[in-house]
């Protein structure tokens, strides 16, 4: 409780954590200005909804790592979120056009309680925790991110899935007005991802609403995103508006785009090279490195299931992971 915060003071200066003091201060000013203009709902109430707002009373989740964290600045300025452009810097530059409140999520399919749920209603059911996960992109770079969220399995229980719910399909918002990248047919919009039901129910599978103790910046997939740390990053779909429980395996965006390169499972696997780049090693983006330090940091070996084998390898016993990549 040492880190709890008085209600009404969403970002106390004492809570400002390095690594990104500058960015923090910028956001603090922006937040204060917006609050002064009366633009923010929820100032003075416990629930944090605006990007940059600190969460109060977070508990530490069971999953963590003592590896060096990626800096806040790097994690929020180097993103693949093609809905806002294909450059890594595009999401940070253009995602401010995304409106994350009000936000509803259509939940449907093989469940007893389908419906359109407001994100704040869902957040009312869940208790948030912080988990530090490794994050491995299929492009062979990786980060270490402190997420804020809740287990997917805890949410799924609320919808009462039926026995024939074998897969979960997720869909990102489609709105070219808010997401300028969707004005070009780079991918088959809207972005879709999917998990097998037992993958979705694994305790590691997280639905995240924040990073570094604060509400997700838009470029990181606000207001709600998936985090599946043993799979390549593109499986961790962002800005979710639909969750569909299905009996059959759902189509997924990158698999549609290049089936030979991106499988449905896409588990991190150093022994299964991507046709265009090796997956044996990765470039870790972590800490506050100078340019010279970054240039002379060597790649580190990639671990099967991104190092989460003890929790998830059993999901795939008997499967040929070269074939089901």
């Amino acid at each position: 409780m040492a880190h709890s915060v008085r209600p009404g003071s969403e970002i106390p200066e004492s809570q400002v954590t390095s690594p990104a003091v500058c960015a923090e201060r910028r956001r603090f000013l922006k937040f204060t200005a917006a609050a002064a203009a009366g633009g923010i709902a929820g100032v003075g109430v416990a629930r944090a909804t605006q990007a940059g707002t600190k969460f109060t009373g977070l508990k530490k989740g069971g999953f963590t790592t003592d590896e060096e964290l990626t800096s806040f600045e790097d994690a929020t300025s180097y993103n693949n979120f093609y809905e806002f452009g294909t450059d890594k810097s595009d999401p940070a530059e253009y995602a401010h056009t995304l409106k994350t409140r009000p936000w509803t999520i259509v939940v449907e399919g093989e469940i007893d309680k389908p419906g359109t749920y407001d994100i704040d209603e869902i957040l009312g059911w869940m208790s948030l925790e912080e988990r530090i996960y490794r994050f491995r992109c299929v492009e062979a770079w990786s980060m270490v991110i402190p997420w804020v969220g809740f287990s997917m399995s805890d949410l799924v229980k609320h919808f009462r899935p039926r026995a024939n719910a074998k897969y979960v399909e997720f869909e990102t918002l489609q709105d070219p007005e808010q997401m300028r990248g969707q004005r070009y047919p780079i991918l088959n919009w809207p972005y879709r991802e999917g998990l097998r039901m037992d993958e979705a129910m694994n305790p590691l599978t997280l639905l995240a609403v924040g990073i570094y103790g604060e509400v997700l910046p838009n470029q990181n997939g606000a207001p709600l995103r998936l985090v599946v740390p043993w799979k390549y990053g593109f499986k961790s779909i962002k800005s979710i508006v639909r969750i569909n429980f299905r009996e059959t395996q759902p189509p997924t965006t990158w698999n549609d785009s290049a089936p030979r390169e991106y499988g449905f499972y896409s588990n991190v696997n150093p022994d299964r090279p991507h046709p265009r780049w090796s997956q044996a090693k990765e470039r870790r983006i972590a800490g506050e490195r100078t340019l010279m330090e970054s240039l002379f940091t060597t790649r580190i070996p990639t671990l099967p299931f991104n190092g989460y084998g003890e929790h998830v390898a059993s999901l795939y016993t008997g499967m040929d992971l070269q074939k089901h990549y």
Partner: peptide, 15 residues
């Protein structure tokens, strides 16, 4: 760009 620390999170990729 490099002097102004503007090469981003992954300077190797940027260069």
């Amino acid at each position: 760009t490099a002097v102004q620390d503007g090469l981003g999170a992954n300077p190797v990729e940027a260069i």
